[in-house]
Amino acid sequence: MSDKTFEILNNTFLTIILIIVVYPLIFVLSASISDPQAVSSGKMWLWPVDITFKGYEKVFADSSIWRGYGNTILYTIVGTAVHLFVLLPCAYALSRKELKGKKIILWFILFTMLFNGGLIPTYLVVKSLGMLDTMWAIVIPGVVGAWSILVARAFFQQSIPDQLVEASKIDGASDFYIFMRIVLPLSIPIIAVMALFHAVNLWNQYFNALIYLSDRDMYPLQLILREILVVNQMQLNDPSGGGAESLVEQVKTAGLIKYSVIIVSSLPLLIVYPFIQRFFVQGVLIGSIKE
């Protein structure tokens, strides 16, 4: 196969993949501002038809949306910071050959990938620590996982030469100084990747909030949006809705709200991702090389 033929096939394949990935995003965005009748009839298949913002008006009419946004942003920022604070020193320490008992520690970490205590014991631990109805019930459980530690550890092993660390120690640098002033500046790719992965998980988190939070003022965005969808569905199923005309209108509004909720919950991440996408190839590929 010639290079030109390979390039044509490769570009064709990548174009197909791009269409498969991008089309649902464009469709959902267009459907959220299109007439629901046009969406359900198939008249709207890519670009908006009979533009309306009634779905967004219904979603943002709920004042708790903004409080949910604020809570989610707070949980995401604080949770990601705590995640990196725990992950990076742990992974770097496990990457050093001079760490005694490293294999035993790694076995304990790997054990958590196969077994955990379950929901009820976890809830009892969170309750006994006094974290119910607090931000820490969202931030602390699952603050760092075995997979993150292993990927970051592999990155440090592959990217931080032993000679660099030894030379720094000869010059009188302490382990803390080496980690803060040498290792971290060289680890921006893996920091960006791990931060985004954990931030996405926190942003989309609703189950922990459903279990650990009873104060509605503490609800994250995903739980607020879930409530909106549930309430809207209950109204749709209410037989005393006011006649066939009212039912048809409710069905149309339900479709708009469904698509609008998807955009409201996903848009911030779609905006942030392009700014750190350039770190992904370097961070994930280097961090995934087997020792």
Rank of each mutant, 00 (worst) to 15 (best):
N208P: 02
E7C: 00
S30W: 04
I26R: 00
E291Y: 08
Y56L: 09
Q222D: 12
V49H: 08
I262G: 01
G42I: 11
L74P: 04
K169V: 06
I182G: 01
D175Y: 04
P89R: 00
T52C: 11
W136Q: 13
I257F: 04
Y206V: 09
I19D: 03
V82H: 02
Y75G: 09
E98F: 07
S41T: 14
L210M: 14
F60P: 02
F279K: 01
Y206G: 06
P189D: 10
Y219A: 02
N232E: 15
V21H: 03
K102D: 09
S214D: 15
G79L: 05
L236V: 04
Q250I: 03
W66I: 14
V39I: 06
M131K: 09
W45P: 01
L256D: 03
V165R: 00
M44G: 02
E291R: 12
K97E: 15
K100Y: 12
I188F: 12
C90F: 12
P239V: 15
L150W: 05
I289Y: 07
S266I: 04
T253Y: 12
Q163T: 15
L164P: 00
C90G: 02
P268V: 12
L202K: 08
A254R: 09
G68L: 05
D162L: 06
K169I: 04
L106H: 05
K4M: 09
F280P: 04
P89S: 05
G242S: 08
P239D: 11
I26D: 03
M44H: 04
N232P: 00
G70D: 09
A254V: 00
G68I: 07
Y219K: 01
D50E: 15
G145E: 10
L29W: 03
F27C: 02
S34A: 07
S168Y: 01
F280D: 05
E249Q: 15
D215W: 05
D238F: 12
A244K: 13
N232W: 06
L184E: 01
I138Y: 04
L9S: 07
D175F: 00
I73R: 01
I26W: 04
E7I: 10
T122N: 14
V59K: 07
G142H: 11
Y212V: 10
R226E: 11
F179W: 06
Q235V: 08
T80L: 03
Y206Q: 14
P36I: 05
I17D: 10
D215Y: 10
M194K: 10
V86D: 03
K4H: 10
A167Q: 08
E227M: 11
R181H: 03
M218V: 05
V200T: 11
G101W: 07
L247F: 14
N11T: 10
I257W: 03
L223Q: 04
F155Y: 15
